[in-house]
Amino acid sequence: MTPARIIDSHHHLWDLSKVHYPWLMQRGVKRFFGDPTPIQRNYLSADFKSDHGKLKVVNSVHIQVGAENGLNEAQWVDAQTRSNSLPSAQVSFCDLTALDATEQLDQLSMLTSLRGIRQIVGRSPSEDAQTGTDGLIASPAFGNGLSLLQARKLSFDLQLIPEQMLRMACLLEGYPSLSVSLCHMGSPWYQSGAGLATWKAGIQELAKNPNIHCKLSGLVMFNHGWRPEDFKPYIEHVLESFGEGRVMFGSNFPVDGLHTGYEQLVDAYIQCINELGKVNLDAIFHDNAAAFYRLTR
């Protein structure tokens, strides 16, 4: 079985002559996802289409990717949605803890492509210790920012690590109508033992909230020498926890493209899902993202 149409709910584009990305342009620095050197070049809609090849990707969602100026990036992406068939919508950056968060959201909301906000809560244990992003969960200002999103009916893309899941699940109970999309299946760093148990428990707790969806994305970042069978235990647990109605595909290209081809990645996910039994691939690869991000094709 294969999906009839695909919506890629999580990918990135960049034009390095228009928007600056400090993390991307660092030289000689390896990140948790690998060495960024091969992707230190423009990655535009035409490149994205070339990567997905013959696959029928009918819609896509651009996710903010650490620009020096988030509004600048969002305005550039909005122009891409008007001049290209992909991307179709975007999730932008806003510092929800800022004193001017309301004004930032006012400006972003003028963009017709805007669907939600991502402010990263956790990247990796070592990086979070340096950046202090782990402190967001306990920040009253961050909680106030989530309230602003809820009131505006904007979604929140949640990127975090397993150790943060239980605390974040507790926090999100206070925002009963906020739609949340869990990026990269909650960053499953651990392959076995207590670490894997932490991830599994966190996934189950987050899944209790009916407003939280989960992206089948980013697994390649955590296993650079991957094989399709490596993904299966994670996909199985996510589907058991969230159900096929709250899981959606995202490629995380071009970052995952450091370690895989686009069609190879899609084939691996489909293989794993098909081996789990009767699962609605059209829901995971199209319908759920269409509903969550309000996409029409």
Results as ranks from 00 to 15, higher is better:
2 T>V: 12
5 R>C: 15
6 I>D: 01
8 D>S: 02
11 H>V: 05
15 D>C: 00
17 S>K: 05
18 K>I: 04
19 V>K: 02
20 H>T: 07
21 Y>E: 01
21 Y>N: 01
24 L>E: 08
24 L>T: 14
25 M>P: 11
25 M>Y: 08
26 Q>F: 02
28 G>N: 04
29 V>Q: 10
31 R>E: 05
34 G>R: 01
37 T>Q: 14
38 P>Y: 10
39 I>F: 01
40 Q>N: 04
43 Y>N: 01
43 Y>I: 03
43 Y>V: 03
49 K>V: 06
50 S>Q: 10
54 K>I: 12
56 K>I: 14
60 S>E: 05
64 Q>G: 08
68 E>C: 01
68 E>L: 03
70 G>V: 12
76 W>A: 08
77 V>Y: 13
78 D>I: 05
81 T>F: 03
82 R>T: 06
83 S>G: 10
83 S>Q: 10
84 N>H: 03
85 S>F: 00
88 S>W: 01
89 A>P: 09
90 Q>A: 06
94 C>H: 02
101 A>R: 00
102 T>A: 15
104 Q>A: 09
107 Q>P: 02
108 L>V: 11
111 L>T: 08
112 T>S: 11
115 R>I: 07
115 R>H: 06
115 R>D: 07
117 I>T: 04
118 R>D: 06
121 V>Q: 15
121 V>N: 11
121 V>L: 15
121 V>C: 13
122 G>S: 11
125 P>M: 04
130 Q>H: 05
131 T>N: 04
133 T>V: 07
133 T>Y: 01
136 L>C: 08
136 L>F: 15
137 I>E: 06
137 I>F: 00
140 P>Y: 00
140 P>A: 07
142 F>K: 15
142 F>G: 07
143 G>S: 09
147 S>W: 09
148 L>D: 12
152 R>D: 09
153 K>C: 04
155 S>R: 14
157 D>C: 09
158 L>I: 07
160 L>S: 11
166 L>C: 05
167 R>N: 15
168 M>D: 08
168 M>L: 12
169 A>G: 10
169 A>S: 11
172 L>S: 02
172 L>P: 01
174 G>L: 12
175 Y>D: 12
177 S>E: 14
182 L>E: 05
182 L>K: 02
183 C>S: 07
190 Y>E: 15
192 S>M: 06
195 G>M: 08
199 W>G: 03
202 G>C: 04
204 Q>F: 07
204 Q>M: 14
208 K>I: 14
209 N>K: 09
211 N>W: 02
213 H>V: 13
213 H>T: 06
214 C>N: 00
215 K>H: 02
220 V>R: 00
220 V>Y: 11
220 V>N: 04
225 G>V: 06
226 W>P: 00
227 R>S: 07
227 R>Q: 09
227 R>V: 11
232 K>H: 01
233 P>E: 10
234 Y>I: 15
238 V>D: 13
238 V>K: 05
240 E>Y: 06
241 S>A: 09
245 G>P: 01
250 G>L: 08
252 N>A: 09
252 N>C: 07
253 F>C: 07
254 P>Q: 10
254 P>V: 08
254 P>I: 10
255 V>M: 14
255 V>R: 08
257 G>A: 12
258 L>G: 09
259 H>F: 12
264 Q>F: 00
264 Q>A: 13
267 D>K: 01
267 D>L: 06
269 Y>S: 11
272 C>S: 12
277 G>E: 02
280 N>Q: 07
284 I>W: 00
286 H>D: 03
292 F>S: 10
293 Y>N: 04
294 R>T: 13
296 T>V: 14
297 R>C: 02
